[in-house]
Design a protein around this nucleic acid. Structure first.
Lengths: 153, 153
DNA sequence: CTCTCACGTAACTTTATAAGTTTCATGAGA
DNA sequence: TCTCATGAAACTTATAAAGTTACGTGAGAG
């Protein structure tokens, strides 16, 4: 299975967008991620539909965060991506006739559901602002923007 | 990504092996799983190397569980499979230069590590015997074998 | 008005990996 | 010695994220 890095990637560019304070183009974000602008647009489309970001066409256009960073949780971003499958493992057959397999599914399924609930709860409890606060090193401009509060550009 | 069902599949056949009380062929297990005997052998190889099962060639051969079902945890089986990747999501780049990406990795990584630890702990806390106890419906032979304790065939 | 910038989207290719398949070798017992 | 069963190499298939190509649309700049 190739491993889904959309959440990781989108969080990365969202923080750069907050840092920038002005519209960031798909091309620039593709640069941050070492990927293609089309991949960025495709993935950002979910966040736009969820109201987390807005996009503007033309000169000076690009993407901006549509809410205060303290009001966007990692869980919001995860949901906006369509709540992609969290686990790489799982039950072979979700509706087996075999009683033994049903027992295995129940046991394994319960464990995974618990872990999923934990992850989703944690993600909803961390905001972009929280992550921004943990960015180390001389990011003065970043801290300036954050300390002044978010301006809805 | 195609989703890893080896743990689920192996637990299923292990319980059938316990139920049977005699060697079960790869062919029979492939029947339980709706798959191919070679897939079963390939996957069971890890459990054999970990000492959880033994295999015998020739007439009357097949696979047997090498320990008491109460002494084999789901975590043991997971480890024997090589502790396959648990999550379908993760960080894009584990060793970024970008400070923003480092902050994202730390935040997301911590959440996933916590959930992974929870899953592994839970799996180590459930034995094959525990799962067997939850098998519902008229599995008299199964219960008989379990109540008599495990015979090292 | 038109040129350029930037997003929107469809359609296709690439990549990684579990799963599945084919084939042959080896060893155990009837 | 014939059959059964595992062992293992080598190959194909399936799937979904990621990557690419190509073209359309709307918004400023000049």
């Amino acid at each position: 299975m190739r491993f889904d890095t959309r959440l990781s990637g989108m969080l990365h560019v969202l923080l750069h967008m907050v840092e920038s304070g002005k519209p960031v183009t798909s091309e620039a974000m593709a640069g941050y991620l070492g990927t293609n602008a089309v991949v960025v647009r495709r993935t950002m489309a979910g966040l736009r539909d969820a109201g987390l970001v807005r996009s503007e066409k033309g000169h000076g256009g690009g993407w901006v965060v549509a809410r205060a960073p303290s009001d966007v949780s990692l869980g919001d971003v995860y949901s906006a991506l369509g709540s992609p499958t969290l686990f790489a493992i799982g039950n072979r057959n979700e509706n087996p006739n075999c009683l033994v397999e049903k027992a295995v599914n129940a046991s394994l399924g319960e464990t995974l559901r618990e872990a999923e609930a934990l992850v989703v709860a944690r993600l909803h409890n961390i905001s972009l602002a929280d992550v921004a606060d943990t960015v180390g090193g001389g990011m003065e401009e970043f801290k300036r923007v954050m300390s002044k509060g978010f301006k809805d550009v």
